[in-house]
Nucleic acid binder design. Structure first.
Length: 391
RNA sequence: GGCGGGAUUCCCGAGCGGUCAAAGGGGACGGACUGUAAAUCCGUUGGCUCAGCCUUCGCAGGUUCGAAUCCUGCUCCCGCCA
């Protein structure tokens, strides 16, 4: 990338970003002709990295490849305090060990996208565990009106729902991170726009050079509607096995295809492909990225066999079953094989959702002879398989 | 400090003494269909020794033949006025 032209480089970096503010800011930073410090804050409560994260991580990687330094901030201090934003159950306070383990796991996975060179990992307990006098100084940098401008705060305020003090504080703490590490650029999803901008104000108040903010669009999850997130269960993890990445990708609605192509592969949907192949190509590309070509081809072949050809997977777990007086009680067998309740198993049977070697069990049948099941592949629905071994 | 609102099955949310395992939506699951784990349509969605039985409606008691629904006391949450 030499000799780099700052204007062109800035435009290239911002090409698929939602916002890059202030205008001309990134170009000016690049003109300083030194490695920039590019910040991303992460929350160590949910350690698994999914494709949604990779949109931002991929952008960080571009900065790295241009010679800049990525500073990953692990929000260990804030996690230790616990976020009371509603339903305390969803956000348990984590112990130090858990946070450390999560942070490590996050780093491992992040390295599937990031370059270990030019990477600095910092924990914000390093500077946030401050004296109260210093906290006061931080709090004095901003007003309530300023913070409650934030979209979601404004909305909640308007309809009379709860906002905790700590939530109000979060943007300030995040902004202080930027002061502490002297961030030149901070990345985030579009939902972070307010916090990132506030970071600039706080940096200014501390007499530090203000960061440029760059926000990336939010990747829709496998449901095609809501943002990809672990808690919504609509995510594809970068550490998922090839078959999972492939299958989950094929399950996205067609309407999400364009976003996935643009945000994950940085290219438009190939116009020459048939609708079905557009998605298969995407799924293959993603498996290749996190595994390799061999795994991608294998995942596709496996998928075609199991779902297209209604075959059984090449590898299925085995379940050992001890029949009572020569008969196999199917609800019991299903419960043992797939950890479903008896009632659930009965329902599946009543709905024709149980098969042996692909052959549907007649509805209403609850018991079968040993010979009818031993060594055969039991299937529940489309996705759960187990080879039965009578003992 | 005062006043008011609320806690329901995975989630949201109806219910206001029996017809309630509890409407509706979401999600999930199953079936059909198909180019896919897409879309669409249909069905299911507390547990069990399953035409019956058992356990659920914040917690603990009480009233009643009978309570998610009424009363009392707790616990927690939320808003408003100071």
């Amino acid at each position: 990338m030499s000799p780099p032209d700052p204007a062109a480089t800035a435009a290239w970096l911002a090409r698929n970003a939602e916002d890059c503010l202030p205008a001309g800011g990134l170009e000016a930073k690049l003109r300083t002709d030194r490695p920039l410090r590019v910040k991303l804050g992460i929350d160590p409560t949910a350690p698994d990295i999914h494709l949604g994260h990779t949109v931002v991580l991929g952008k960080l990687r571009e900065f790295q490849d241009l010679g800049h330094t990525v500073v990953l901030i692990i929000g260990d201090y804030t996690a230790r305090v616990g976020d009371p934003s509603g339903r305390s159950a969803t956000r348990p306070v984590l112990s130090g060990e858990e946070i450390d383990a999560n942070a490590r796991s996050f780093q491992d996975q992040a390295l599937r996208v990031l370059d270990a060179e030019r990477l600095e990992v910092r924990f914000n307990a390093e500077w946030l565990d401050m004296a109260m006098s210093e906290l006061f100084r931080l709090l004095a940098t901003t007003t309530v009106a300023r913070v409650t401008e934030r979209d979601d705060f404004a909305k909640r305020l308007a309809d009379g729902s709860a906002i905790s003090m700590l939530e109000l504080l979060y943007p300030l703490l995040q902004g202080y991170d930027s002061v502490a590490i002297r961030a030149d650029v901070e990345l985030g999803g579009t939902d972070q726009k307010f916090n990132l901008l506030l970071g600039r104000d706080i940096q200014r108040a501390y007499g530090v050079s203000e960061q440029v903010i760059l926000t990336m669009p939010i990747l829709p999850g496998t449901d095609g509607v809501r943002r990809m997130s672990k808690s919504l269960g609509n995510y594809v993890g970068v550490a998922d096995p090839p078959g999972e990445i492939y299958g989950k990708t094929l399950s996205i609605p067609d309407t999400a295809l364009a976003d996935w192509y643009r945000l994950l592969l940085d290219r438009p949907v190939p116009a020459e492909l048939a609708p079905r192949d557009e998605k298969r190509a995407l799924a293959r590309a993603l498996v290749e990225r996190y595994w390799d070509e061999v795994a991608a081809a294998a995942a596709e072949a496996e998928f075609d066999r199991v779902f297209g050809g209604h075959g059984t997977p090449s590898e299925v777990p085995e379940v050992l079953f001890a029949p009572a007086n020569g008969l196999v009680h199917l609800p019991a067998l299903l419960g043992q094989a797939f950890d479903v309740s008896t009632s659930e198993a009965r329902r599946a049977l009543a709905q024709g959702g149980v098969r042996f070697d692909g052959e549907q069990v007649d509805r209403g049948v609850l018991d079968v002879g040993v010979d009818a099941v031993d060594g055969r592949v039991l299937q529940l629905g489309k996705r759960r398989f187990a080879r039965v071994r009578i003992v």
